[in-house]
Amino acid sequence: MVRTNIENQLDEIQDDILALASMVEKAITHAIDALRERDLEASQAVVAFDDVIDEKRFVIEERCVDLLATQQPAARDLRWVIALLHIAVELERMGDYAEGIGKISLMMGDEPPLKPLIDIPRMAEMSINMLHQSIDALVTRDVDLARRVCDADDEVDALHEQIYNELLLFMIKDPRSIQRATYLLWVTHDLERTADRATNIAERVIYLVTGKMLDLNLSKQVS
């Protein structure tokens, strides 16, 4: 099989996307680990790592622009390039959420934790799984897997609501806990947004393969 120039370039961009996804996964994992362990050094590292993620995103953008300018891709290839470009943006935003969690951890500083973190790491794990699977779906063009990712978003949302209510209770019971509880609310919000963006990637995979753009959140509400 002779590989064309454009195919090689697309593969390279895809490799970069995979690298970026792996960076984001690690950033979120480390951010949550640092938050749980109260490891400020590690939190600092997560915040600093966001620059690397941002840089990678620009590398991907450059490559996409380069490909568009020199190869003039048509039809399927064009759709693909644009999709990869969007996914790079989504990933970069997820990296920002990881940075946000790192910053919250730094803000919390030496304050004693409100409670042992159990549900937030679980939520993080679910979001990271969604991200991993959405990228898996992208690579294998697996529509079923992409749909499963979209479905998993409901679970994350449910967990988000549960943690939200729990933290509200804390605040009601003890107004002194309001600041710490609010910090944790930010963390859960960042994680919830991460899951949403993973869903966006999955939706884009469905669009790429089937040519149909489903807003799954909307369709679920209607039904």
Binding site: D11, Q14, D15, L18, S22, E25, I135
Partner: peptide, 14 residues
């Protein structure tokens, strides 16, 4: 399959 698709790690890729 491409190893980048399987070994999804940017350090390893690098």
């Amino acid at each position: 399959r491409r190893f980048t698709e399987i070994i999804r790690d940017h350090n390893l890729q690098q």
